[in-house]
């Protein structure tokens, strides 16, 4: 039986080659054969390799998205955003996993931290792959002259679509476990992930810097919540502004 579950020929390669190819196969499996991936995780096959592969995929794909967002302003912002977005993703995974482990143990009586970490990272790596696939759409929007607020909303939409894909995989994870507490567990993970992810991304902003900003800060001071900011962007994109202009970073107290 193939250790990767997808290509038996990989078993004939040496250990290092198999590790590299196996990592790629594990990631490719997220797109092509997610049920097979979940089978492997359930069986405990190559968990360490999978966790590394999924974490690396999450970093690489969110870095691509970060660089794309940063290209709206250009310059150092490309690097800053490419560094910050993977941090947001990894920290979100680090916050969601213990919550998932604890809730699963309580609600369903069973939880293996290594398997749960692999499952969480698998879902997030899939989200990373899907969101990086939307990067060309953002580039096209910028090329067509989309403004700051329209680009912001398009980014939210792209991330939302990627999140739906990850949620679908998460649903498959839950369906494999005991039926008891499944909905509560799912809702809890979604809420914790949403809160952690949005707050982390809000804390480490900016990614899409306002074009008229002279300064390009690595992070900005916290100003209200993420949900309030999305509402402001909706209004601004429709031409309804709540203040004459947004204060530049150097103008804030």
């Amino acid at each position: 039986m193939s250790t990767t579950g997808l290509n038996p020929e990989l078993d004939l390669i040496g250990p290092r080659g198999a590790a590299a190819e196996g990592g790629l196969a594990a990631v490719d499996g997220l797109l092509r054969a997610p049920e097979s991936v979940l089978d492997r995780i359930d069986a405990g096959d190559d968990l360490e390799l999978r966790v590394r592969a999924y974490a690396a995929t999450l970093c690489a794909t969110t870095a691509v998205m970060g660089a794309t967002l940063g290209s709206f302003r250009g310059g150092w912002q490309i690097l800053f955003a490419a560094v910050k977005l993977p941090l947001v993703a990894l920290l979100t995974a680090a916050l969601v996993t213990p919550a998932f482990v604890a809730a699963r143990r309580v609600l369903q009586g069973e939880a293996d931290p290594r398997r749960e970490a692999a499952r969480v990272l698998a879902c997030m790596a899939l989200a990373g792959l899907l969101v990086s696939a939307t990067a060309p759409v953002l580039l096209l929007a910028m090329a067509l002259g989309a403004g700051y607020h329209a680009t912001t909303l398009l980014t939210v939409a792209c991330c939302g679509l990627a999140g739906l894909g990850a949620a679908a995989l998460g649903r498959r994870v839950l369906q494999r476990g005991p039926a008891s507490g499944r909905r509560t567990l799912g809702a809890l993970v979604l809420i914790v992930g949403a809160l952690a992810g949005t707050q982390l991304s809000w804390t480490l902003r900016p990614y899409l810097v306002r074009p008229r900003s002279d300064a390009v800060p690595f992070v900005r001071a916290v100003e209200g919540s993420f949900i309030e900011a999305v509402g402001l962007s909706f209004d601004s994109a429709r031409g309804r502004y709540h203040r004459p202009r947004a204060p530049l970073p150097e103008q804030r107290p």
Binding site: D28, L31, R32, L129, L130, A133, T134, A135, P136, G165
Partner: peptide, 8 residues
Amino acid sequence: ALYIGAAF
């Protein structure tokens, strides 16, 4: 992006 979209 084409590969990811098609594979998904």
